[in-house]
Design a protein around this nucleic acid. Structure first.
Length: 122
DNA sequence: CATCTGACACTAT
DNA sequence: TATAGTGCCAGAT
């Protein structure tokens, strides 16, 4: 499963009338901190509910007409705006917690000694 | 491998 | 609320 596939799958889970953010999607896909990869996926993919993906705080990060279209699409789905951002508290879609996907490890030939486990102090 | 880029996130002011 | 600065990750050059 590629990162992009996971991101795509995650985005498709956002139901009509709900929204999420780049960062939240990245985390839900198993790649915390990879918000920018969500962007890349959105850009070259089709048939996605792209309008349901916003920036942190429910802010539209697009420019020009695209921003207008996104807002119109969301409003037509019943998503209410508060100024230039949506009422994220009311419309954010909560994804189920998922374990972070470690970088696609491939077979290794007795390299990399077993990594030391981190001790939790509390 | 160094550097740049992007529909970002988070913190500080 | 708005503006900087830094951190983050993966892909392209």
């Amino acid at each position: 499963m590629t990162m992009e596939a996971r991101i795509l799958s995650t985005i498709r889970k956002i139901p009509r009338g709900k929204i999420s953010t780049y960062g939240a999607i990245a985390r839900a896909a198993g790649y915390p901190g990879a918000a920018r990869q969500v962007v890349g996926t959105l850009r070259h993919s089709y048939d996605l509910p792209w309008q349901r993906v916003l920036g942190a705080g429910g802010e539209i990060k697009l420019r020009g007409d695209s921003a207008i279209e996104q807002r119109l699409r969301l409003e037509s789905e019943g998503v209410a705006f508060r100024g230039r951002r949506v009422d994220i508290k009311k419309h954010e879609f909560k994804f189920a917690r998922v374990k972070t996907v470690t970088k696609g490890k491939k077979k290794r030939t007795s390299r990399t000694p077993a990594r030391k486990r981190r001790t939790t102090s509390g």
